[in-house]
Amino acid sequence: MKNHKRILIISKSTADISTEDVIDWLILFGNRPERLNGDSIEDFKSHSITFSINDVGELISNTGMTGSFYAIWLRRWSDYSSLIETKRSFDNSVSSDLVAHIISQLTRDLTVIENFILSNIRCVKFLGSDNKKHGNKLNNLLLAKKHNLEIPEFILTTEKTSLNQFFEKHNKKIILKDLSTTFNYELGSILYTTYTELITEEDISNFPNKFYMSFFQKYIEKEYEIRCFIIETKVYSMAIFSQMDDKTKVDNRKYNFQNPNRTVPYSLPLVIEEQLINLFSDLKLSSGSVDLIKGLDKKYYFLEINSDGQFGMVAECCNYNINYEIAQFLCS
């Protein structure tokens, strides 16, 4: 069986297991996909790649990535994590302020390159999406509400008085959330990271009267969480019983290694599945992950979309054939 359709897979690196798994299905279908790894652009020491424009104004590269593709799967672009290495490579004589400036400049430059490449490779079928484009949590919440999905009430405020009102309104149960990505900070050998936490009365009393605009959300008492992976009109759901464990009650990223949260296949009500599919089509997203909560009030709350989210865990825990579905989509 041979399948000569040109398929391009854009991924972070060769170490991405999900990418490898999908490629293995494509190989079985007789296809040899081409690859572009985010880290081959970032990690110049171990890769050599040059882009230019040909006579007819097409983007070409020395690695043969030229012309147009039948299908492109944007698994995920690099998260620029190799810049941490770059940061470490400066010696102490360079001021940390200058290093920070250089790193943020590099990040911006890499983003320009990323946007340029992503908008200049052509294909008939496109799967995946750019988290940087679809990752606006606030937009997504509003749009979810438009599609009749339940969302936890939230405010964006700079005022302690408004915060206090919101706090009282929701029976003193609210959370503070990151708006963009998780904040990671390395100090010595310890990695500090932000988690979603319940705000206490004491916390608020320690806040100044005015602060940087922050995002507060009503805390939903949950029965369990649900993670879905959506590809076109198929929804694969998994329930996560994090409520049984105090460590992961508010934020299941605080993983309990000894006693992992119970994760099992789940079947969402059809109405909810339809609302999610409509939301995705509104966002022009062909695939991505969604986090939901099933509240004790029996309602399903939409939390957020991760368009380049990992689906490996959902596929593995529930024995869903997601890798196969993706490979099928790309070559049929």
């Binding site: 296949p265 789940y266 969402l268 529930c318 024995n319 196969y324």
Partner: peptide, 14 residues
Amino acid sequence: DRFPKINTQFNSPY
């Protein structure tokens, strides 16, 4: 019904 059994069909490309 919300908690279906795990599908026992195990597919592998190898």
